[in-house]
């Protein structure tokens, strides 16, 4: 048996600030979200569609300058259902998904929501890889990735 008389609680935290300068491509992508547009760009060499837009193609290493407005519909590549509260994330249960816009060569991480359930555990089964999703937009949009609140099934 442990002698709990020795037990002691230590309060400790790391408050870590993050700062990043976006550059033109990411700025233009985020600025598009203000107008409910999900913008990508197309590599002049391999014709690969990049969503979110990128400054250069990581395959061809050439600058990407041709812009493209996607339909906003994305497909689930992979997902994870979270049942515990984590800093900076929505209240559980919530679904984090890797989604791909149209035939993009890149995919990105966002929240998936609006899937009905009675018990949280059902979300494991009800969320499907390959599911088509559409964005749900924030009322007030400021040019941030969270201008998209989450992606929800197209037929919901």
């Amino acid at each position: 048996m442990q002698d709990i008389s020795y037990n002691k609680r230590f309060e400790y935290n790391w408050d870590v600030p993050f700062k990043v300068t976006l550059g033109e491509s990411y700025f233009r992508f985020l600025d598009g979200l203000k107008n409910k547009k999900i913008l990508g760009n197309i590599c002049p060499k391999c014709n690969g569609l990049h969503v979110p837009a990128r400054p250069f193609c990581d395959k061809c290493l050439v600058e990407i300058t041709k812009w493209y407005e996607t339909s906003g519909i994305v497909t689930i590549e992979s997902f994870s259902v979270t049942y515990v509260k984590f800093l900076g994330l929505p209240d559980p249960p919530h679904i984090t998904g890797i989604v791909r816009a149209e035939n993009a060569v890149t995919s990105f991480l966002h929240q998936i929501g609006g899937i009905p359930y009675d018990e949280p555990k059902e979300l494991d089964e009800k969320t499907k890889i390959g599911m088509k999703l559409k964005p749900v937009w924030a009322e007030k949009r400021i040019g941030d990735i969270q201008d998209i609140l989450y992606f929800t099934p197209v037929d919901a």
Binding site: Q2, N7, F10, E11, D15, V16, K19, L22, L87
Partner: peptide, 29 residues
């Protein structure tokens, strides 16, 4: 296009608080 370059700032405050238990409690005492 330098006016189109913006900064994003955010922070994570991680709580690492922990209870020592007997073994580490003895060490700290």
């Amino acid at each position: 296009m330098s006016n189109n370059v913006i900064k994003k700032e955010w922070r994570f405050n991680f709580d690492f608080s922990v209870a020592s238990g007997e073994t580490y409690g003895r060490f700290f005492k």
